[in-house]
Design a protein around this nucleic acid. Sequence first.
DNA 1: CGATAAGCGAGACGGTACGTCAGGTCTTGTG
DNA 2: CACAAGACCTGACGTACCGTCTCGCTTATCG
Lengths: 197, 197, 197, 197
Amino acid sequence: MPATSPAPRRARSGNRRDEAARLAVLHAADDLLVEHGFGALTIEAIARRAGVAKQTIYRWWPSKVEILLDTLIEDSEKRLPVPAEKATAEIIRGYLRDFERFLNGDPAGRVLLAIIAEAQHDPGTAKNFHERYLGPRRERERAMLVRATDVGEISPKLDPDATIDALVGPIVYCALTGSSIPGSVLDTLFEDLLRPR
Amino acid sequence: MPATSPAPRRARSGNRRDEAARLAVLHAADDLLVEHGFGALTIEAIARRAGVAKQTIYRWWPSKVEILLDTLIEDSEKRLPVPAEKATAEIIRGYLRDFERFLNGDPAGRVLLAIIAEAQHDPGTAKNFHERYLGPRRERERAMLVRATDVGEISPKLDPDATIDALVGPIVYCALTGSSIPGSVLDTLFEDLLRPR
Amino acid sequence: MPATSPAPRRARSGNRRDEAARLAVLHAADDLLVEHGFGALTIEAIARRAGVAKQTIYRWWPSKVEILLDTLIEDSEKRLPVPAEKATAEIIRGYLRDFERFLNGDPAGRVLLAIIAEAQHDPGTAKNFHERYLGPRRERERAMLVRATDVGEISPKLDPDATIDALVGPIVYCALTGSSIPGSVLDTLFEDLLRPR
Amino acid sequence: MPATSPAPRRARSGNRRDEAARLAVLHAADDLLVEHGFGALTIEAIARRAGVAKQTIYRWWPSKVEILLDTLIEDSEKRLPVPAEKATAEIIRGYLRDFERFLNGDPAGRVLLAIIAEAQHDPGTAKNFHERYLGPRRERERAMLVRATDVGEISPKLDPDATIDALVGPIVYCALTGSSIPGSVLDTLFEDLLRPR
DNA sequence: CGATAAGCGAGACGGTACGTCAGGTCTTGTG
DNA sequence: CACAAGACCTGACGTACCGTCTCGCTTATCG
């Protein structure tokens, strides 16, 4: 009688990285940020909450912001993916609205704002933030715009990067100052800068 | 016979607030931020640098961000005043360009970015930042726009607040991400959103 | 009418050293050593027990052994003074017996043994132990012997230092190995090496 | 079919204890103690230096002091054997002088002092030290004295154990306090306590 | 004019978190 | 099954700042 399941059992630790610990840290950091704010986000608190040793954190992350960056990358991939297939004007408009909702409603959006903030205080954070998040994402946003332009869905007034800055800038700025940009304003900017067909 | 000068001399201490100490603290905070970044901006470092006792700082400022806020308010009044007299399209365009230069070139601009950042981490800071800086300044910016509109210099597509967010947002966002928005992009937004005569 | 007391009141802290904290640390260290052994004598434990901040300990003592050295010096001054007045054979014999009892019965004796031990592990400790305890005490012991010799109370076979080593050595050695030298043996060595009148 | 030997060659690992690893650990511990002092004697450092896994140490030794005890036992058997054949006064005197040289000159002597020290800090160490080193050695020293007494080589004033304490005590005490007892003093004690023929 | 009261530099104090090190346990994969 | 390797939790290390406090001084104000 042949081979019941391979019994994965518990393989909690060994000489390989412990996935459970990794996730516990990511979630602990996320939760602490959302529940008690960035001020409560200390390595000790994360370790305590995750049920993990401080050393385990220091072994795998150079700073607490890198932890946030990890959660941000994983979360924004799921919750705010850059549309990668067909690029219609409507899809782009939807992305902008999702972006606004992400920043003002989603816990992961709080993480993004916190990292932007921390990047002002520390050049190392700024560098990693660009290399690991902003850069790659901008790449895909630019590609989305170019595709839509090629297809004739939109005909932007400015070059792709400037266009993105002009559209995303107000959204982020409003989120940073605690307000939330109205959908109608978003629409006006969208119509105005992209001139959709 | 009209009283020889009151000889203010150095009044290093006494029973009234010591202006020299106040200025020393403001400058020390400013300098530390610019030279070594926000991470080096501790109360102890400010006190050390200013040659002042910690208690003197705690007596007059509730937190180190309030010190920055004080310097920001004084400095941006001097270096980036909101035009309050006549409001022509050209004056508004100049203000936007000055704003960009302020953020990316002036030490006081670094202070503003640092405070925006800190406001993400701490609600109290956010509140004070709005009440003491953002709010009053927005008031004057709005007034400037209204005046220009009334006079027929511009005819904005959006209501004043949305207009300001849409113009200032990209400038701030670019500064926050370490880049610097090109003048040409600024001009396009300006033309587009304000439709100057 | 001779001036009622100058009202010392409580002056618990200020910009001068806090005597209460100093004593709390000394006692905490002492107690921990006696109750849980040298292994439990960590700076953190001392601070915890004394109700004192770690920094307060580091401010005044370079190492935990120096704390022990402080208690040892204060305590052995009280509990095992070197006879400084008249020096008869009987007084010297009494001192030797007291020394044995100090090492094997008194908590302060445990402190002495612990410091001797720690001096084996760390040259700095050895140096301080000699300069602050062993040296000055040996001085007084030597003086006691010389005085007794001059008066004709004893006529030692060896020079003073060798005599002390020969008498104290067995006492300390037995204490270190957990046994306790019999009084009769002490008497034999005493008679033999000092040849009292 | 030539049945070449089973090629034992280097049997670095397998299912029996690896003698090379055992020796590497003992030597690493010894070297570290001599070169950098007891403070540098950590399990991790020993493992590093011996090129051995920590687990290998924990598998065979309950504590680092037991490692030292192992080296001490092996070394002092070779370098400071208790004379077991004929016991003349001269041989005993030589043993005392060798003992003094062992403590003050031989690396293995440093190990003995370190263990004595550590025994003050930890009762478990004290117990093992007595059972594995002090006890058996004292046995042989006592036997040596008894033999010499029976033969009439010496006629000690005190019982064997007290005699040994009285002779060895000053030697050890001087070594512990960093000085070194003069040979002449040793001779005086020897003559005085043993009264050799 | 002398008492009072406040601001000041200085710095000790009880704390929290930092980033590092070692302890001792456990698991993996190799020989 | 012993071993090298090394991840893991625990807890102490010594340091930096936090925000509060007392000290001894100087100086303006007021009775």
